[in-house]
Amino acid sequence: MTSAVLDLPLPRESLSRRLSDALFKYRGLLLTLLLVPPLLWLGIVYVGSLIALLLQSFFSIDEFSGTIVREFTLKTYAELLHPANLDVILRTVVMAAAVTAASAILAFPIAYYAARYARGQMKAAFYLAIMMPLWSSYLVKVYAWKLLLAKEGAVAWAADQIGATPAIDSILSAPLIGGPSLSVSYFGQFLVFIYLWLPFMILPIQAALERVPGSLIEASADLGAAPNQTFRTVILPLALPGVVAGSIFTFSLTLGDYILPQIIGPSTLLLGQAVYMLQGTAGNIPLAAAFAVVPISVMALYLLIAKRMGAFDAF
């Protein structure tokens, strides 16, 4: 055995090697280079335009000429409190809350199974099944649901075949959520919202559950907790950050959507439609901006409450 050092030549000095040397020496430089483009994008293009929009909400519109009066006023916000506008806000917030709650309840068992039991091929199949609806066009999915939920549609037909028509009729005859058919009722709208946003709820919950070590669940059982107690005192608190993350998606996506409510549901407006119409046909940018502030405030309030309740304590 020889102990001679292998006499390899050093790699050739090239521009890229010298660049690597510089980046190795000045760590901050690399970080700056990596962060400047996204920060420019987020900071100026995104947040900047958002602020520009929000500033519009402090302007008002001249009722005679229809031109924007560029003076600071809270008049536009006062308009939000007009019963018709308040109605839009309330209806949308209730719909978003209902969609979020239903999505969370539907998503949890699926996410729990995927995080704790699915392995190998089952896990791949799970991801595929969750992600696949996201690959197809939003509009195609919404129109497909319109046909499914129509009076002579597949859902009504299937309900008829299994004798569930009375159940659907009782939903349709219910006040508020009902209507002539599922496709023009709030209940139908609610179903399609859930369908659209469910993946955004499942994935964060699954990610949160994935981080809960199995030994914690065993420890809970070891200390005398029956499965339902373990769920309440260990699994749910640790999954809560995931539920909150998921509900940010489902809640804000529902609050802002203006296409689905045009296609499915009654003719009354949701918040997103109101913003769309005000800044488009009506040309009332200040009121549209004031409407746009509503979901932002609702989300901020929601996150504040979630934090107060300790949803982010475990991390």
Binding site: E218, S220, A314
Partner: peptide
Amino acid sequence: FQDYALFPH
């Protein structure tokens, strides 16, 4: 438990 399994929350 080997990893102590203390509840982080």
